[in-house]
């Protein structure tokens, strides 16, 4: 019943002058309910303690463990070996800078995205601790949360051909971030403000709409809808800009 799994794992340590990029083979006996989290940790503890990979929550919540599993970007912690063939190829996510083996630098990419999208509420109202909170319709709160569910795993970026061609493309995660704030009544930015940020080729007009991003998103974010929403919004804003006099 139990299978022997063969892993082909990308190895390269940029900090080791002797290291060359290559695929290394490992074999491991499969156990019940095995996930890639369990498998990779066993490989590290039992076979190669230098093997680099990232896990944090191991519960599909934090977005640390994106990697390319048999050709598809996904969260390793919620990938069960029993859903995979006995040959398993693991590669680091493309687009992001490689740190070593399966680790990539999603942190720097996303921090830069926060700055580029100005990923925060823009408001001139100061907080008044003596006042009741501003009211919000629960449906609005839920719509915002729906977009806020992004865990910044980078899978959508890794799957996106535009992002692979142009490193400055904001990607589905970046555009979804704009959509999140555009939905939020607390944010006082106008369509024109958003247009300044994403009405260009590294924003909505760079997207080719093939939707590889939505297919791989482990949180099933409605990326397709949001990209469409932004494109329409920005399209209209672009037309308005053309006729603007100032």
């Amino acid at each position: 019943m139990s299978r022997t799994l063969t892993f082909h794992i990308f190895r390269y340590n940029p900090q080791d002058p002797a290291s060359q990029p290559h695929l290394q083979d490992f074999s491991l006996e499969e156990t019940a309910n095995m996930t890639l989290f369990i498998a990779l940790n066993r490989l590290r503890e039992e076979q190669d303690p230098g093997l680099m990979f990232d896990f944090c929550c191991r519960a599909g919540i934090c977005g640390s463990c994106g990697m390319v599993v048999n050709g598809r970007p996904r969260l390793a912690c919620q990938t069960k070996t029993k859903d995979l063939p006995h040959e398993i190829t693991l590669l680091p996510l493309p687009v992001f800078k490689l740190i070593g083996d399966l680790c990539v630098d999603t942190g720097s990419w996303f921090r830069e995205m926060y700055t580029r999208t100005e990923s925060w509420i823009h408001t001139n109202t100061p907080f008044d601790p003596t006042k009741e909170e501003a009211r919000m319709d629960n449906a609005v709160a839920e719509a915002i949360y729906e977009m806020e569910r992004c865990i910044e795993c980078g899978c959508c970026i890794a799957a996106c051909s535009t992002a692979r061609m142009r490193p400055d493309f904001l990607g589905a995660a970046g555009l979804a971030r704009i959509a999140r704030f555009a939905l939020d009544p607390r944010d006082e930015r106008t369509d024109r403000d958003y247009f300044e940020l994403i009405g260009n080729d590294f924003g909505v007009f760079g997207c080719m709409g093939l939707l590889a991003c939505e297919d791989v998103c482990p949180k099933n974010l409605p990326l397709q809808n949001q990209l469409g929403f932004l494109r329409r919004k920005m399209g209209i804003t672009a037309i308005k800009q053309l006729f603007r006099k100032d």
Binding site: I121, E133, M136, D184, R186
Partner: peptide
């Protein structure tokens, strides 16, 4: 105020 979408 900072942006948390609390359920209402």
């Amino acid at each position: 105020h900072w942006g948390v979408p609390w359920n209402r």
